[in-house]
Simulated assay, not measured.
Amino acid sequence: MQLMASVFLPTYPDPPGPKVASNAVAVARWLNATLDVAIVNVDIPDVSNALSRFLLDLPPKIREVEAASRQRGKILLDAVAGETSRCNVTLMSQELKAQPALMGEAAANEGRYFDLCMVGWTPNNEASQMTAEEVVFSSGRPTLILPGDEDVGQLDHVVIAWDGSRVAARAVADAKPFLERASAISIVTVTDEKVLPREDIGDRLAHGLAARGLLAKAESIHAGNNEIGAALQEHAIEINGSLLVMGGWGHSRLRDFVLGGATEGILADLRLPVLMSH
């Protein structure tokens, strides 16, 4: 069965980083997946107040903002189309429209129709961050968070952040397409962050993967004085990991996200691609 992946590219107030689109195409090629590109443009409600119309001249400004959003979307789509053609990746595309506060929600709702969601993460880019958080916690699909400013390359060394939890188990199951293509799999357990179910959880997961034909190495690390998210990323980079797989702790209420420690640390300073499941 053909894997279906979608990348969500919000265009307001700023587009994602310059590498997100090309990285999404590279991942689709790596997975032999069809890529759906969902451009998320802004749709600002009409202003009917007479004072707003005549004194502030808002309606023309709204049309100008929406037109700029659509133009950024067209540029992004053209860039992806050129990249998919070069890489021989099957492309589908769609345009979503949503009010500024609901752009992430629109992406998450659409993401439920795909096997994998991809989003960009660019520092100080509110649209990218809001979309990423909403898709991770509301789409019900595994979400690959891509750095917006650098090439990701082949995701052939998968590092699994493993604590034996439900969300970690879900993440490992969702990572199957990546695990099957990996040349190396590392299972990393942080032992000084919280009480773990048992001492050998990493070895147990390695044995389970081996029974499925996947060779993995289990190891334990200490976070020490580092935040757990920083410790996981630093270790993954140290062992030349190209993809970090982890469960996403958190929930959203009225767009106020409450994140677990590891999740918050990863999203505060994303340094490599992260596949997150909730």
Rank of each mutant, 00 (worst) to 15 (best):
A26W: 06
V27M: 12
A28N: 01
W30Q: 12
L31T: 10
N32I: 07
N32M: 09
N32F: 03
T34C: 06
L35G: 01
L35K: 00
L35D: 02
D36N: 15
V37K: 04
V37A: 03
A38M: 11
I39M: 09
V40H: 01
D43T: 00
S48D: 13
S48I: 10
N49G: 12
A50H: 11
A50W: 13
S52E: 06
F54E: 11
L55C: 02
P59G: 10
P59L: 11
P60I: 01
E64N: 12
A68T: 03
Q71A: 12
G73Y: 05
L76H: 05
L76W: 07
D78C: 02
D78I: 09
A79T: 14
V80G: 08
A81V: 14
G82R: 08
E83A: 14
E83M: 07
T84E: 03
C87E: 13
C87L: 11
T90P: 08
L91I: 10
M92E: 15
M92V: 12
M92C: 15
S93A: 13
S93E: 15
E95T: 14
L96F: 03
A98E: 00
Q99V: 11
A101K: 14
E105V: 05
E105S: 05
A106G: 02
N109Y: 08
N109Q: 13
E110L: 14
G111D: 05
R112C: 10
R112K: 15
Y113P: 00
Y113I: 06
F114L: 04
M118Y: 06
V119F: 08
G120Q: 10
T122L: 15
T122V: 11
N124Q: 15
N125L: 05
N125Y: 05
Q129M: 10
A132I: 02
E134T: 14
V135T: 08
F137G: 01
F137P: 02
S138P: 01
S138Y: 04
G140K: 07
P142M: 01
L144S: 06
I145S: 06
I145E: 05
I145V: 15
P147S: 14
P147F: 14
P147M: 11
G148D: 07
E150L: 13
E150F: 12
V152E: 03
G153N: 12
Q154W: 04
L155F: 02
L155K: 05
D156T: 12
V158M: 09
I160Q: 07
I160W: 04
G164S: 13
S165L: 04
S165T: 07
R166D: 06
R166W: 14
V167Q: 06
A168Y: 01
